[in-house]
């Protein structure tokens, strides 16, 4: 049965993946469909009039103008966002998605437009409230002695605690790879559901991007929450956030890269980042 199922699944997948490449011609005025989640403020979220708004919506509009294409934004649940790209429901993903080696195995990316460290957030009156590490930033490649010590400090402080994270994220990978065995990991369908449980005290800490936390912590919804420990980048967190694109559509990825280069050069990305995140989370060259 196992082999039988494997064969069927594999057959379906291989057929789909190895079929003749259907790379479209992304000429002037063609339509590019961009998927976003709509539940990850301030990157992309839904306002009370039901409209999709956020950093990536503004950026997408700017990039599409630069690429001289029509853009259509489609809302898609996070968990199926890569499979649906491969299935052709849309042509690009702009949903706070980090460029990781694991994802590069199945799709390609434009260059990064934003980079933001991952950081733990805890309740100010919770058990991890006073946790501090000696370094502010840990890059998960070629660790320095200080960085190794900081990771060990996190491990010691978080031992036996429950940490929440959104499903299918780089943050989930990090917890599974680095804090394996020390903490209980709870996975959530959306970051917003995780926030509800953090406030309710069902998790002791939550791991997500600093750019997500900062505006939340400054708003009413973030009352009683605070960041804890260093910001993490690199390694399992990938190399910044970019637009995810099907491998066959390298031409489209190149167009995005060129447009992002231009938008970074003239300060548009920085301006939008400051407007939405309150700090400059734009990718540096």
């Amino acid at each position: 049965m196992n082999t039988f199922l494997k064969t069927i699944t594999a057959a379906a997948l291989t057929l789909a993946v190895t079929g003749p490449a259907a790379a479209a011609d992304w000429g002037k005025g063609s339509t590019v469909r961009i998927a976003t989640e709509g539940a990850y403020a301030p990157w992309n979220y839904t306002d009370s009039s039901g409209k999709l708004v956020g950093f990536e919506l503004d950026l997408a509009a700017d990039l599409c103008a630069r690429m001289e294409v029509e853009c259509e934004v489609i809302q898609q649940a996070w968990e199926g966002i890569i499979p649906a790209l491969q299935a052709g429901k849309y042509d690009a993903i702009m949903a706070g998605m980090s460029i990781t080696e694991k994802r590069m195995e199945v799709i390609t990316f434009s260059r990064s437009y934003a980079a933001t460290p991952a950081v733990f957030v805890v309740k100010s009156d919770g058990p991890l409230a006073d946790f501090k590490a000696d370094v502010d930033a840990v890059t998960m490649e070629e660790l320095t002695a200080g960085e190794t010590a900081a990771i060990e400090a996190v491990k010691a402080a978080f031992a036996g605690k429950t940490v929440g994270v959104q499903i299918a994220t780089t943050h989930e990978n990090f917890l599974n790879e680095v804090l394996a065995g020390d903490v209980t990991v709870k996975t959530y369908d959306t970051q917003e559901n995780l926030d509800l449980d953090l406030q309710a005290g069902r998790v002791d800490a939550a791991l997500a991007a600093m750019s997500y936390w900062k505006p939340l912590l400054e708003s009413d919804n973030g009352k009683g929450l605070e960041m804890a420990g260093p910001g993490f980048t690199g390694g399992p967190f990938g190399n910044g956030v970019g637009a995810g694109i099907r491998k066959e559509d390298q031409a489209l990825a190149d167009m995005f890269t060129a447009a992002i280069d231009a938008a970074i050069a003239d300060g548009t990305v920085s301006k939008l980042a400051i407007e939405h995140f309150g700090f400059d989370a734009s990718a540096k060259n």
Partner: peptide, 25 residues
Amino acid sequence: FFGGGQAAMAVARVFGYTGYIESDP
């Protein structure tokens, strides 16, 4: 949701259709 689009495309390709099948949620 995850496999349906790919399966449908696989079937379509057997019949020589090479584009992507539009499928909204």
